[in-house]
């Protein structure tokens, strides 16, 4: 563990409640290496933002929205899920390393699930070899 993996989570502010475990600089105190960027709705997240994050040096990106079926704005989480899966434009670019992206759909009370899933995700990132050449 010379240096912890850098993971960024793009999260809907109405999805699982991280208040209290995110400090002012945007780091998650429960998950080492986790940075948090809040959105009004997960539907606002562009695949381009995820690509930019990876390009800027993130080892992984966690997209977090509300439970599928329960978007405050009706469809945002379905939209970003379809975009990630390549079923709705705009999608991720071909060369994007999809092993470094995880999407979680968690309701407000599910903070523990978020923490455990993120830790598990970081563990899988540790097992990944050096970033793919392409």
């Amino acid at each position: 563990m010379s240096d912890a993996k850098k993971v960024i989570t793009l999260i809907c502010e109405r999805a699982c409640d991280l208040s209290g475990i995110v400090d002012d600089s945007g780091s998650c105190t429960e998950v080492p290496g986790m940075k948090v960027v809040k959105f009004p709705c997960s539907g606002m997240i562009q695949p381009l933002m995820i690509e930019n994050a990876i390009k800027a040096g993130a080892d992984g990106v966690v997209v977090t929205g509300c439970q599928i079926g329960d978007c405050y704005y009706r469809e945002g989480n379905r939209m970003i899920r379809e975009r990630l899966l390549g079923d709705r434009p705009p999608t991720l670019k071909k060369g994007t390393d999809r092993r470094r992206i995880l999407a979680l759909w968690l309701a407000k009370p599910q903070r523990q699930r978020f923490i455990s899933e993120s830790k598990e995700f970081i563990a899988t990132l540790n097992n990944l070899a050096t970033p793919e050449a392409k």
Partner: peptide
């Protein structure tokens, strides 16, 4: 089929 987690298939 219900999901709380989507792992993207590697292409």
């Amino acid at each position: 089929d219900a999901e709380e987690k989507t792992v993207l298939p590697v292409k």
